[in-house]
Design a protein around this nucleic acid. Structure first.
Ligand code: ZN
Ligand code: ZN
Ligand code: ZN
Ligand code: ZN
Lengths: 169, 169
DNA sequence: CAGTGAAGTGTAATAGTATTACACCACGGC
DNA sequence: GCCGTGGTGTAATACTATTACACTTCACTG
């Protein structure tokens, strides 16, 4: 559960948001490893869904993914949802609750960590950053209420650096 | 933007989660005051939606609200959504993004505050608690990323005190 | 006191998100 | 070979949210 600083250093080279991921192949590899560890197949469909998300700058809805995949070969939403389920378990994809959409992640996450999804209301990109303070705050609130915390969702709507600059110019 | 302690003291008498609100009338009054301040009518429909939520222990979906209201007189979902929009602006109702459902709130909220919604995965109740640490963490993450924060969503799934006890017994 | 405009209502239709059901296929272990 | 687990493809359905439009209410103003 590294400190905020340490974690940020790990995230360098990642630049703005999770822009068209430099490294789609690496993400595929991570998913494949997860599948192997669980002795589950890393199927064509799973790879295709992840690839679409990894190439995209912004979160996509399940139906947007469906549409893109359908260009090459008709697929149905339920197939995409199945792929998304797997990829979320693998930690390769997150769901943005506030937008009911999905985006690829190339971070390693750790249990107990609290990750903030910063969503730009102007351009739609998402940038994620773990925060120990937030984790502590959640922990504290839970403790105070006798609540046993499991899975946090932390989303912050606002305006990303790039969009702020653009406007200023 | 009081400290965690101070805020919690203000919340006493509120007991477990936002159980069938002791004080439906007070919540109505709050909504009415908001409406008056904006010179907007506090209509029948708005009151009916709020009343249903205030009497309920758990969040309800818009369609569940629709069904309850329809018992006395048939209403349509869109009418409920309109009521919910108003009530959310008034700060009397929150939306739980992770469940696409709505619940009444009898707290006062303040700008810049970060409120944690603790959602019991067993009984479904929601308990809210403001956290300064979380607020600071969000602020810090945003600052570090050059992100201009606007509206946070913080939800924590887990098990409430009551359910934990019950199991232990 | 008619005219106007902002805001709400009631109804219908539609868009958008997610799940269930089921028949069939692929593969690894016995 | 047979079976069990897990994936696929297809259809149907459930659930969540919004748009459109005709009509009403009410406060304001000329
Ligand atoms: Zn991530
Ligand atoms: Zn932006
Ligand atoms: Zn509240
Ligand atoms: Zn509970």
């Amino acid at each position: 559960m590294a400190g905020e600083k340490a974690h940020h250093e790990r995230c360098e080279g990642h630049g703005h948001a999770h822009s068209p991921h430099s490294d789609v192949a690496a993400m595929i590899e991570r998913a494949r490893a997860f599948a192997a560890a669980r002795k589950l197949p890393f199927t064509e469909m799973r790879a295709r869904v992840l690839t679409v998300l990894a190439r995209e700058e912004k979160p996509l809805t399940a139906y947007e993914i469906t549409d893109r995949l359908s260009v090459s070969k008709k697929v149905q939403a339920v197939q995409v949802y199945r792929g998304l389920d797997f990829l979320q378990e693998a930690g390769c994809v997150h769901r943005l609750a506030s937008k009911a959409s999905y985006f690829a992640c190339d971070h390693e996450h750790h249990p107990g960590e609290a990750v903030v999804f910063m969503v730009c209301s102007h351009c739609g990109t998402v940038q994620e950053a773990p925060s120990d303070l937030v984790a502590q705050g959640l922990q504290g609130a839970a403790e105070h209420a006798g609540f046993k915390p499991a899975h946090p969702i932390v989303e912050l709507e606002g305006e990303c650096a790039r969009c702020s600059e653009t406007k200023a110019a």
